[in-house]
Design a binder for these strands. Structure first.
Lengths: 363, 363
DNA sequence: GTGAAAGCGCTAACAC
DNA sequence: GTGTTAGCGCTTTCAC
């Protein structure tokens, strides 16, 4: 099978064995270098020859081998994308943006989910190293330092979201959680809410900490001292939201509004409330975070804080690309700002009793 | 920069330049062949040497270059995964399963979304060809024949869902839509529904056609002749569901139950109903298809037809792997059966009026 | 059982 | 402007 000549009954078109740059060169009567140059659109090639080469390429339907290209050029044209769990709609939306931009620029992406498991993360990083990624976007909202070493040691450009070690070759996307969260708290306070609960994300996540801190700060700004009982830990999943709302419900003095660390949590909260027979927003207001697509059609439509996936994807890609393609300029940490802002829909309203109170007043 | 010797101020550990099998060989005092064999766990290597090699590898934290391996061995250990839109939660759940299994078996996956755009699909296929994937799972629920040619011509093993050309090297996952859909229709009929509407998927999708056909057949089995007006075309998105329900609502004789081609559609339908002030399931029953995770917490929890993502992922991977690793045995089309079954939750009940009717009867 | 040597398909010097 | 040649980092005959 190795070196049998093309069987006589095969037309040259489907002689699919050994289709390489050399074959093209022979058929187009040029050298392999010319073929390579043509494919890579080097401007110095004689248009006549180029045309001949392209014709042969099209006729044979030749596709260059990326592995060989990568091996010799040292450019894999591959970026790693590390996420925590593909199952949270936030991430697919982010992936979509990242992939779009990457492909547009001739890059491929290698996606890995860590599922919050450090062991898995270590595997993911190893695999990325083996495939020689040129950079990796770490969108897990938190990473163990030792694992990071693997990448840093090899000088792989990195971009983090939120949390980022301050080193050359590392960019970080600074999300302005406070802006959106303050808007949310103010929105609630303006409506008359004082007892505003917060369902946080897993406390080991930096982003979760930042969101919590933004909540606390915003509450103080509104002159409210948050009761520790109002803060309960979720885990950014549907089930976590259900459980967290359960905890809140078990308390004597029920909050009149619940701010959630992400939309999945909020959807869980909505569900638990539905199960309990409490109406949103009549009995209690709920606010999410992320503004995933589905938040528009929850029942009721979710008031939430938007954080643009596209903005993040774009910034992450740009950070990586600039590190790779012009490593000399701008060495050192680069920061990108990501904004957040409140989207008011229908899961927020006056605290229970306010309407009656107002009505009485006006009568 | 090319051939400068290790600077004296650098310890060998961080002499990160040119870390290859050769370096390991030199430091372990063996030949590169032995290093290669050790890494590949060839059993004939002398344990003593192997130990020495592993020690050096660990000390230098050496990671083999997959590109080079792939180039010389002809095995990229890469599978392509073609999906229609990553934004539909069905797919991330499928990706998760596929990735898990693939990584377990030493494969990496290249994910591409076509977004239902033939042009994009053509790009995706091209990129996969360039990266020399060893097989591709086409989970788009429909593909244009000409594009398929690209893959088939190069004898890339393929696995389709639902629709599959009958050729060697091509496997197909046959989903038994009829089973689940019949259960759904019977469930509805048993509850007393006769006017059961169906929101289909995009009509150009094979899977959508199959689901529609299963609905029609099941209706007839229950002795109901479906009115053409009951069948409206959606597009498997939230918005499509909203729009489809809008169409249904505009009709004189409103259906008492709506069966949807997928869960996203059903969630859209639920939302439109909520907007209209109709209660589910009191005024109208709704059934979805897929059983995505979020279906458990919709309001009300969605009765839906389950199609196991894990089962699909596993079958797809197995099909591909068996084609790649033992191409001689079982040449030809291989079929895998995927089952579907009804999960009854709370979006279905008696048609409006039945309860009162029953109550009257019993009084 | 181990090493030397020949490439895998391509790019990038370097001559011409 | 085009061709020749030397590898990229690895696996895999093939001798020993």
């Amino acid at each position: 099978m190795t070196n049998d000549p093309t069987p006589p009954n095969q037309t040259p078109e489907d002689a699919s064995e050994r289709m390489d740059i050399r074959t093209i060169a022979r058929l187009a009567n040029v050298s392999i270098a010319t073929v390579s140059r043509t494919i890579n659109r080097v401007s110095t090639v004689n248009p006549k020859m180029a045309k001949r080469v392209w014709e042969v390429i099209e006729k044979l339907d030749f596709v260059p081998n990326t592995q060989a290209r990568a091996l010799v050029s040292g450019r894999s044209k591959l970026f790693g994308l590390l996420i925590s769990e593909i199952t949270n709609p936030f991430f697919p939306e982010l992936i979509q943006g990242f992939e779009e931009i990457a492909v547009e620029h001739g890059y491929e992406i290698l996606i890995s989910s860590t599922n919050h498991d450090p062991k898995r993360m270590s595997h993911c990083i190893r695999r990325m190293l083996e495939r020689k990624v040129e950079g990796v976007a770490i969108m897990t909202f938190g990473i163990e330092e030792p694992l990071l070493e693997q990448l840093a040691k090899r000088k792989v450009p990195l971009v983090f979201i939120d949390v980022g070690p301050d080193r050359p070759g590392i960019s970080v996307l600074k999300v302005d959680y406070h802006h959106g969260i303050r808007q949310a708290v103010q929105h609630l306070a303006a409506l008359g809410h004082r007892r505003i609960a917060f369902v946080s994300g897993p406390k080991l996540l930096h982003s979760a900490q930042s969101r919590l801190a933004a909540y606390t700060k915003s509450m103080h700004e509104c002159g409210i001292v948050p009761d520790p009982g109002w803060i309960v830990e979720g885990d950014h999943t549907l089930e976590g939201g259900v459980a967290a709302m359960g905890q809140l419900l078990a308390q004597d003095d029920l909050a009149t509004a619940v701010l959630c660390s992400n939309d999945m949590t909020a959807i869980g909260v909505l569900h638990k409330l539905y199960r309990t027979g409490l109406r949103v927003p009549d009995d209690i207001s709920v606010i999410g975070f992320d503004d995933i697509h589905i938040a528009e059609v929850t029942i009721p439509p979710l008031t939430t804080i938007q954080m643009s996936r596209f903005e993040i994807a774009k910034a992450a890609f740009d950070a990586l690309q600039s590190q790779v393609e012009s490593p000399n300029q701008l060495i050192g940490k680069r920061e990108f700002n990501i904004s957040t802002s409140l989207i008011v829909r229908e899961s927020t309203s006056y605290p229970r009793g306010t309407m009656e109170h107002l009505r009485k007043k006006s009568t």
